[in-house]
Amino acid sequence: MLEPHERERFERLVMPHQDAAFNLARWLLRSREDAEDVTQEAMVRAYRFFGGFQGGEPRAWLLQIVRNACYTWIEKNRAADLMTEFDESAHHSSGATPEAAAVASSERERLMKALESLPARSREVLVLRELEGCSYKEIAAISSIPIGTVMSTLARARERLQQTLRPAPGKEVRRDV
């Protein structure tokens, strides 16, 4: 479907962002296995639609496709994940595996669990900013939200992350679950 030089362009412009694609999918889906499937599907989709891309930032263009593929996947396979958006107490128990509830053995694990406990939309914006280093403008394009919303979502996500990481004596009980 694509001309040879288009294929070369795809390999040059889009393929280098496979890591970014995988990283976003991994954090949105909270699973490496599922992220592999969805990344693969999104890359192929991007390749098919590459005719529609002629300028702009290829990373943002690809990440927009990956993000949409992830939400489609979540809706189909784990619709409950999106509900936790509105229920702050639920995502601790629902998404977390027994390991997640166990005492985090290292700082890295502690941060990982905290990040995974955030609602999907907050996690998405935070990962794009802190791990991927995207500007507000890029995040707005990837997530299809106004720039002002990027700023307020980030504020909320970071504050929540801070709260989760703060030692809360009331939550100690979970360790025994």
Binding site: F22, M43, V44, Y47, L115, L131
Partner: peptide
């Protein structure tokens, strides 16, 4: 410091490359 960024596994990259070749 926690280095939370997770890169695409090499196996996945190969799979994608192959599938794109087949797609064409």
């Amino acid at each position: 410091a926690a280095k939370l960024y997770e890169r695409a596994p090499a196996g996945l990259k190969m799979k994608i490359k192959r599938q794109i070749a087949n797609t064409e």
